[in-house]
Design a protein around this nucleic acid. Structure first.
Length: 713
RNA sequence: GGGCGUUUAGCUCAGUGGCAGAGCGUCACAUUGACAUUGUGAAGGCCGCAGGUUCAAUCCCCGCAACGCCCACCA
């Protein structure tokens, strides 16, 4: 018996050693794989946000993707799993701002360059850290090709795309109403908002002969019209007329306009129109060519257009203005139980202030169209399939994408801005000096790209589009695996931008995993204090056990509750396998296993069942039911191999039928090697460690051994 | 307002048009044997509710309820 085969199995002593062995072998890099690995097979790791530790969700992603790539590798594919990290623009800046706050500092008191440098240092430390964590999970990715979203070549590709969008008239700089976060001092895309229902007060205010209903009386100084429904008989006579409004300041003559947007049933059927501070009113304003009067500044305070209320914050202003209106007898009614939804910043949950700002927008409908077609033709397959509907619905209702962010942490937008007319010009080569619209001096755009604008180009950017050999070999990739909650942020953008730039969709299979929840099924969050660090679990139970526990019982798309007990069960399993191997090796080490002996009838039956089992597992693997394959392996190994086959073999080994003994030994050894292979993608460490200790092996490494099939047994 | 998902053992969840499954937990017994990170066995179920299709429904269809999630420009 091999002296290394100590009991029980000790993951701590094994895992780092095995991982180093793999790294040294070079087989993570497809260029180093033996000749039989010809057809490329590619997956890209979703670039991890380099702003903190590995979380449980990463653990699941890495587990599933490692299973996919190890399986492909053993099947003889030229398997590339390309890892990376993301600077994660706004997300990282928010994390860093919290850190600054704790230290009693503020980003608004720092020079942009200083802030950038600090966040860069912070990110690089986290990046290094998170890569170490990914290695701990057993990830067999090609570290020699690792990418970061701020790498020079990635930025270059992103700039080229920006230029192309501009050339193709799919990019424009527009003065449009955007979601402004007062706390973070940046605009956000629609996806970065969170709608929440809340109860507010609805004020019914006299506007001349009419009464309007509003929750935001403080915006009345920005009113530039009153709107009614064109078919509302009550108000027909006012349409087109100008009405005199009793007000403290501001415009006191407002025109009544007719617009279908107004619902006669809601409130009084009359709406005040404030184009500068409400998305609907902004649209009405465009339709009716209304004047736009801004009355709220970027800090959420009323500005000089509000007279004596200037400088007040929205909440204070509302209170005082309502009092003033009441004193003037202008409030008709107050409904304090008005339920509605409002948009909040998805990070800080403060109410977003709609503001008109010049920003860069990408026209999305033309980009979405070809993807809608591909999905409808079933050229893109989702696991689980219900995501098809979700994605189609979103793509069909897509709006233009605001890609400007007023934060320093990100890829600077390569453009020049005219301060006078707020027009903008894409300027990758930094050569433009005058505004083409009004001939004024221009300045460099200080904004950065939405982080998803760069990660949305990940598949072709990391593979070196358009000229590199890697791009030619590995694009399009074979499957995208990621968390279901970023399908709009990331997956859909990769599809659209990938198709737009390269003409080919970057992948045609999309496997979406659910969220990892705490053991009570609640979302993990730092504030709740229920965050489970995957590394703690791997330390305690071993990485193999963690991977099995994450996977089994986890169907694609559904959330999984992570509990200690479950992981513990699979630690026992790893040990069980270890002891099975000890038994088989102990009983076969002096036996000639090269030449197949005569097999008894009962062993033949066992082998036939094994073939069927292999087919069964293969079917699950091909159809991406990894959770199912893993559970079947668990059951076969524990309850058939150990409980039945090994138990029965003991009596044979105790008797004197040498032929039966030899047959049994050969059979046991075959089953063990098959099981090690089948199990390898799921529990790579313990299987490789056992493989390394086998008396006979058909190659040096289990990681590149041939996946079992009828022919190679 | 629209859409999606879930509902199965005490807990966490698989699964199938044909006797209802796993892990953990519980209980009883066994055992130094590859493995106590063990073995054998047991208890535990109106498969959310109500209808329909079928020889047969936990599974397919219709409705309902509860929970969860996503999308949406009624002030």
């Amino acid at each position: 018996m091999n002296a290394k085969f100590l009991k029980p199995y000790d993951p701590q002593k094994t895992e780092d050693k095995i991982y180093k062995l793999w790294e040294k072998s070079g087989f993570f890099n497809p260029d180093n794989l033996p000749n039989r690995h010809k057809d490329p097979f590619t997956i890209l790791m979703p670039p991890a946000n380099a702003n903190g530790d590995l979380h449980a969700g990463h653990g699941l992603v890495v587990t599933i993707e490692d299973i996919i790539i190890r399986y492909a590798r053993m099947r003889g594919k030229k398997a590339l799993w390309l890892p990376g990290t993301d600077h994660a623009g706004f997300e990282t800046q928010v994390v860093y701002e919290k850190k600054l706050e704790k230290e009693g500092r503020s980003r608004f008191k720092m020079k942009p360059k200083e802030l950038y440098k600090e966040i860069l240092d912070f990110t690089l430390i986290n990046k290094k850290n998170i890569i170490e964590h990914i290695k701990k999970m057993g990830a067999s990715c090609d570290w020699s090709r690792e990418k970061f979203t701020l790498d020079k070549d990635i930025v270059k590709t992103v700039y080229k795309t920006f230029q192309k969008l501009s050339d193709d008239k799919l990019l424009y700089r527009g003065k449009r109403i955007v979601n402004w976060c007062v706390k973070h001092q940046t605009s956000l895309s629609e996806l970065e908002t969170k709608s929440e229902e809340q109860t507010d007060t609805l004020y019914y205010i006299k506007y001349g002969p009419l009464i309007i209903a509003t929750v935001r009386p403080e915006t009345k100084f920005g009113d530039t019209a009153i709107a009614v429904n064109p078919n509302d008989a009550r108000y027909k006579k006012y349409i087109g007329k100008e009405i005199k409004i009793d007000t403290q300041i501001g415009k006191n003559i407002l025109k009544v306009i007719a617009d279908d947007f107004v619902e006669p049933e809601f409130g009084t059927g009359v709406v005040k129109v404030t184009p500068a501070h409400d998305p609907n009113d902004f649209e009405i304003g465009l339709r009716h060519n209304l004047e736009v009067i801004e009355i709220i500044d970027k800090y959420g305070r009323l500005n000089k257009n509000t007279g004596k209320y200037e400088g007040l914050k929205i909440k204070e202003a509302r209170k005082i203005i309502v009092e003033d209106l009441q004193n003037a007898g202008l409030i008709e009614k107050i409904d304090e139980n008005y339920k509605h939804t409002i948009k909040k910043c998805y990070k800080c949950l403060s109410i977003l202030e709609p503001r008109i700002m010049p920003q860069w927008f990408v026209r999305m409908k033309p980009l979405a169209k070809p993807i809608i077609e591909e999905i409808e033709k079933n050229n893109i397959i989702y696991f689980p399939k219900n995501y098809k509907k979700i994605m189609l619905h979103w793509l069909k209702n897509i709006n233009d994408w605001n890609i400007s962010r007023q934060i320093v942490w990100g890829i600077p937008i390569p453009a020049k801005i005219c301060e006078k007319c707020s027009d903008g010009f894409v300027d990758i080569d930094n050569i433009i000096t005058k505004c083409a619209s009004c001939d004024e001096d221009i300045i460099k755009d200080t904004d950065t790209f939405d982080t998803w604008f760069s990660s949305g180009q990940w598949p072709f950017a990391v593979l070196g589009y358009p000229n590199s050999q890697d791009y030619k070999t590995y694009y399009p990739t074979d499957i995208l695996e990621t968390a279901g909650d970023i399908i709009f942020f990331w997956v859909s953008r990769m599809l659209m931008l990938g198709k737009y730039i390269t003409g080919k969709i970057p992948f045609n299979k999309i496997y979406l995993n659910g969220m990892v929840l705490d053991e009570k099924g609640k979302k993990m969050s730092k504030s709740k204090g229920n965050v489970i660090n995957p590394l703690d679990l791997t330390k305690q139970y071993g990485t193999d056990a963690f991977r099995m526990g994450m996977l089994i019982g986890n169907t694609p798309g559904s959330n999984i509750a992570l509990s200690d007990n479950k992981i513990k069960a699979y630690k026992h399993f790893a040990n069980k396998l270890w002891n099975i191997a000890r038994f088989v090796i102990e009983n076969t080490e002096d036996t000639d296993l090269e030449n197949k002996p005569k097999i008894t009838e009962s062993d033949k039956k066992i082998m036939d069942e094994l073939y069927k089992f292999i087919e069964n597992i293969n079917k699950d693997m091909e159809e991406f039911r990894f959770y199912m394959a893993a559970e079947k392996l668990y059951n076969y190994i524990w309850h058939i191999l150990a409980d039945v086959i090994i138990e029965e073999s003991k009596s044979i080994f105790n008797e004197d039928d040498e032929k039966a003994k030899l047959s049994k030994k050969w059979t046991l050894y075959q089953i063990l090697t098959v099981c090690l292979k089948l199990l390898h993608p799921f529990t790579p460490f313990v299987t490789e460690e056992i493989w390394q200790n086998l008396p006979k092996k058909d190659s040096g490494f289990l990681i590149i051994s041939e996946w079992p099939n009828d022919k190679n047994l």
